[in-house]
Write a protein that binds this DNA or RNA. Structure first.
Lengths: 199, 199
DNA sequence: GTCTATAAGGGGATAGAC
DNA sequence: GTCTATCCCCTTATAGAC
């Protein structure tokens, strides 16, 4: 049984691939380009990732971990009030969206690129993407459930609409010099009004 | 000078291509499939559309005309009150989204599929898509400008967030049995509250 | 043995020629 | 309509360098 050679290789390949996938789209980036920019051999890449699909799934999995960590930090900073936590979740997205190199939500971008990619086996990119979206939505639903509002389901939908709206706008509004800051501010403002409305 | 042969040919090709592009995505549909399903010859297709890009642009242009017509009808039915017109614009999107065969916004789908398609020449698909989005947003901004609200820009952003949120959710929430109806209702409800808030 | 570099297989794309 | 040219894709196999 051979030892795992060159421990940093997998991470380096995955890092290069992740940046390329995110910046240019999964379909637009070929394996050749990843190999060239990573400075590695083709054999080694296919040893760590038997197919491009595995590499894409690992890319989304990494993005998911980073998103989960960011959400966790935002919730911690918001304290114990579920209303403040809900505002913090939307505000975290608003902050993420403002990042200069932000180019849309990685998971929604993937699903838009591969609309016919069914969720068959475990570890499929589509499965990872759906899991992240459901997890993110569940974080909102949990906190809304702790509020005393007349129609909690509706509030979840409305907050989720803000999040999705922000992500989608970020995906196309950067073409012209259209800044996302007003949209991000408007989303946070609206989220605060929504969670503070008494039944 | 040869006569224009078979006047309905162009429309037939465009109709078949539009349906395929919308249902399966632009990248997933090759020219061969369009030719096969349209029952036309390859020569004839390239005579009407010299490149695939031209066919895609015509597909988006057609979708744009249909969207403009739907918006015009919704505004007419809403009467002269700008508040009712704004609610009608969001409600029209909510209705469109509920359609069983709805598979997302054609323009946003295209921009997601081709993120690096710059707007260079006229008639490019990306140009058509951007024009439609700006036109749709302008329809909201015009009516908000006629309201006496404290921060009109913010209201435009918030209404636009609802529209984008609806469109994006429609693009991925239909995978599982997740119905869009609650989201559509929530969006219309929120739009009504937003435009009826006094400064 | 481990990695790189290169070539080739198999498929499908657009576009054009006949 | 069929057939071909050209290109790029993912993937595998082979050959060479440290």
């Amino acid at each position: 049984m051979p030892r795992t050679p060159a421990p940093g290789t997998r991470d380096r390949i995955l890092g290069v691939a992740s940046r390329l996938f995110y910046d240019h789209g999964v379909r637009a980036v070929g394996m050749n380009r990843i190999i060239t920019e990573a400075g590695t051999g083709k054999n080694l890449l296919y040893q760590h990732f038997p197919a491009k699909s595995d590499l894409v799934a690992a890319y989304l999995e990494g993005a998911r971990e980073r998103r989960a960590e960011a959400m966790r930090r935002a919730l911690e900073a918001a304290g114990d009030d579920p209303r403040e936590q809900l505002v913090a979740l939307v505000a975290e997205v608003a902050t993420t969206v403002r990042h200069p190199r932000f180019r849309g939500c990685a998971f929604r971008n993937y699903l838009a690129e591969f609309p016919e990619d069914d969720a068959e086996r475990d570890g499929t990119p589509a499965v990872v993407a759906h899991a992240q979206l459901e997890e993110s939505r569940a974080a909102i639903a949990e906190r809304v459930a702790r509020l005393d509002v007349a129609d909690p389901d509706r509030l979840v939908e409305q907050l989720w609409l803000l999040v999705d709206g922000l992500y989608l706008q970020a995906a196309y509004r950067d073409r012209l010099d259209d800044q996302l800051d007003p949209a991000a501010d408007a989303a946070v403002d609206l989220a605060r009004r929504l969670v503070n409305t008494r039944p």
